[in-house]
Each structure stands twice: as C-alpha cells, then as structure tokens.
Amino acid sequence: MFAFLLRRIVQAALVMLVVASIAFLMFRFLGDPISNLLPEDATVEERADLREKIGLNDPFVVQYGRFITNAAQGDFGQSYRNNRPVSDLLAERFPATAELVLVAASLALALGIPLGIYTALNPRGWISQGLQVVSLLGISVPTFVTGILLILLFSVTLGWLPSFGRGEVVDLGGWTTGFLTLSGLKALILPSIMLALFQMTLIMRLVRAEMLEVLRADYIKFARARGMPNRMLHFKYALKNTLIPVMTIFGLQLGGLIAFAIITETVFQWPGMGFLFIQAVNFSDVPVMAAYLVLVSFLFVVINTIVDLLYHVVDPRLRVEKSTARGV
C-alpha cells in the first residue's frame, strides 16, 4: 500500500511539473507583460527598468527554475490587472467555487444513483422510459442554455430566486460561506442545478447501464438461484459491483465540475475562480491564468489519487494479497 502511494505521488508530481511548464510557456507566448504593467505613455527606460526588475532578461532556464520554485510554494506573482498577489485573489475566490461544486456534486450523486438504479430495475416502466428521454436532453443540451432557461423561469418570470451573485456571505476566518444565510442558500440553488444537471444525467445513465450489466452476471443468477431476496440481490450484491466503474467516472467528472464551473459562474456572475479566470483571459492577465491552470490540474490529480485509493477499499481484488491462492 505504501509503495503504491509513493508511486502515485511521484506520478502526480510529474504531471504537475508538465502542467507548470505549460503554464510557464504561456508567459512567453501571450504577449509582453510589460505593456500591461505600465501606463501607455511609459518611457523606454522605464520599460527596460521594469523588465530587468521582474527578471524578464534572465536566461530562459533561470526564469523557468524561478517560476517552478515559486509555484511550488504557491506564489504565482502579481496579477497584472489588480496588482495584487495572485494567490490572494484565488484564495478569495476559491470558497465560492468550492461550495458551488460541492453542492452540485452532491446533487448529482444523490439524484443520479437512485434514478439510475430505478431505471435499471424497472427498464420497461413508463417512468423509466420518460427519465431516459429527459436524461438524453440533459446530456445533449448545452449547460449555458439550461442556465439561461432556469434564470428566465425562476428569476425573471416567477421571481423566486436571484439570477446572479452569491447573496450574503459569512466570513469564517478567510473562508466565505453562503451556507449560513438565506440569501446565500437561495443564490446557490440555480447555479448548482445548472452545474449538476449534466453530471446527474451522466451518472444516472452510467448507473443504469452498469446495473443492467451486473444483473446479468453469473454471480447474480447464482444468488437468485439460492433464493436471496430481491432487496439483498439489488442493493447489496449488485450495487457494490455497479459502483466501481461509477466511481472512476465520477472522479474524473468532479475535476470536470470544477473546470465547467467557468461557464456556470459566467452565466450567474458567480464570484468564483472560474469567473476570475474569464476576467483574466479578457485582460491577458497571464499570472492569474497560469495559477488557475496549475490549481485546477492539482485538484484533478488529487481527486484521481483519492479515487484510486477508494478502489482498494471497494474492490478486494486490487488489495495487496496477504496470502496467495493455493492449489486444489
């Protein structure tokens, strides 16, 4: 187990190094930062001074080394736009995105798994058929369209829920939360539905397909031939086998949720990291973009490592053999 963990950490470090390199290359190819940092009427001397000061005249390797060293310590330099440390900006915005993703992911799992099981156990029922059609819509309609439709219905027409922002937030020692106020909770509803919808339909369809497959397996037939009650057959014997592949996909999708939050945050003007990123793109604020790239990749790597560890909990075949199978 320890060797496995060590191997995974080395792999993760390599992935992060590659991502950091790509982030670094952005600095070299996305225009000249000097023109963003200084007023338009700055003199040539001023430009040259700044260039020397922030180390743009150093050799490539030195700059690269410095970037990686700083990035490893969470220092991505100053934002060109706000003239504040990028790490501060991201730390400010992170709670908003984290809460949105958390609610969306919980929603997707809490609805997707039961609906998937239901449609697998009653494949011919009209509710299942209806859900299949709706889920097809959920998968194929772009999320920004559903977001805008949600705003139109619940904010504009009915006026029940806010169409933008986080509402009132409470600051808990640097972590701003919307969970503790009514307006904060109300503001969470529409964006998290928009973000969760695609994932939920995906999970539902995946659970359904896996469950149908597992129910045809020999060990389920044998359990049925032993007269095990349906409840035990479905929710104990079949479900655990069903959830193994679902876990992989959900791990990947959780990273996707963080990345896709960009669109949701833009539609709902949600003050999270994705919204920050879009603003940074409009302004070619390369340090923010680079930091966002590195942070999202880091989250991806962490989540996937956790999923791999969970496999070992769920699937005994992957556990380290304590004793090997003996002959007959």
Partner: peptide, 22 residues
C-alpha cells in the same frame, strides 16, 4: 424464492463467475 435455495439448490457451470467478487 423461498423454495429456491431451501428446497431446490442450483450449481452452475462456471465457478469462476458464480461467486460475487466483492
């Protein structure tokens, strides 16, 4: 269902897939 297993048991062809792996 109550008769299955209790009165009439069954053994299938493939022991490798007849047991629940998890």
């Amino acid at each position: 269902r109550r008769i299955r297993g209790k009165e009439i048991g069954a053994i299938f062809q493939d022991p490798l897939t007849s047991l629940n792996p998890v």
